[in-house]
């Protein structure tokens, strides 16, 4: 347990002593802020129209902030995360391989699973910080409107699960190579594929299309953004994360044999 913490601390420290963390955070926040601003502008225009129509017909106007703004913003944040997570995970193991520090970790009295977890948590905390900061504008909505609170929380949890799954997948890919560019490119390819994989489902047989639909990460995330915490989706994300970490462990273990 202590060993996990030492690795975690070093890893998180190296995100912040290098410009990596600042660049990732800035890019994410600027992009998600840009999307948020545009959704807000569209929303205001739409409400004004609705108000006019309501006044004309003499009825009460009602626009759902959660459905029209917050849910869309969650999807935008998830898409930006697909772009940013490869940058968080690409260095995690590939860099250790390149600089030879893997040799230090492998010959120190800690088990591979301990340092893999330490690294995973460091990436996860950076990701959490990124998501949490991007929630500030959403919480500002509470000052000026009356969105429902719990769907916001469930969306937040959904984003954490989604990121957690991508992080474990990215960690695995980082363990296959010593080249960070390759790790990032392959991770990005796989994340995007997982995102759009269900587009093909309509042309497949029922069995295959249900398998593909289950794999499509976006459908599981959708529930969370609507305010539903479905145990099926929770189990999907948790097993995805655990499976990714397990495969990373096997991949690292096999270095001893393959090299």
């Amino acid at each position: 347990m202590k060993n996990i913490f030492y690795i975690f601390k070093r890893e998180l420290g190296s995100y912040f002593t290098s410009p990596v963390a600042y660049v990732i955070l800035t890019v994410f926040l600027v992009l998600s802020g840009w999307f948020f601003y545009n959704i807000l502008a569209g929303f205001i225009q739409y409400t004004l129209q609705m108000d006019q129509q309501a006044a004309y017909y003499g009825v009460q106007s009602g626009v759902n902030v959660n459905m029209m703004m917050i849910r869309q913003q969650f999807h935008n944040m998830a898409i930006i995360a697909v772009f940013m997570i490869p940058m968080i995970t690409m260095r995690l193991i590939a860099e250790e391989k390149k600089t030879g520090t893997l040799e230090l970790l492998m010959t120190s009295p800690i088990t591979p699973i301990q340092w893999i977890l330490g690294k995973y948590f460091a990436g996860f905390i950076l990701y959490t910080a990124m998501i949490t900061l991007a929630f500030v504008p959403i919480f500002l909505l509470f000052l000026f409107g009356n969105p429902e609170f719990w769907p916001v929380i469930s969306g937040y949890i959904g984003l954490l699960f989604l990121g957690g799954a991508f992080l474990s997948c990215g960690l695995l890919i980082s363990s296959f190579t010593e080249n960070q560019i390759i790790a990032a490119a392959v991770s990005f390819f796989i994340f995007l594929l997982l995102w759009v994989i269900d587009w093909i489902s309509s042309s497949l047989s029922y069995t295959w299309s249900s398998v593909i639909k289950y794999l499509a990460i976006v459908s599981h995330f959708d529930d969370f953004s609507k305010g539903i915490i479905d145990s099926k989706s929770v189990i999907f994300f948790l097993s995805f994360i655990i499976f990714g970490i397990f495969l990373t462990y096997r991949s690292i273990d096999s270095v001893r044999w393959r090299m």
Partner: peptide, 11 residues
């Protein structure tokens, strides 16, 4: 001590 010292160059 490996042939190339296993240093974290940012520390």
């Amino acid at each position: 001590m490996p042939e190339n010292p296993p240093l974290y160059t940012d520390m």
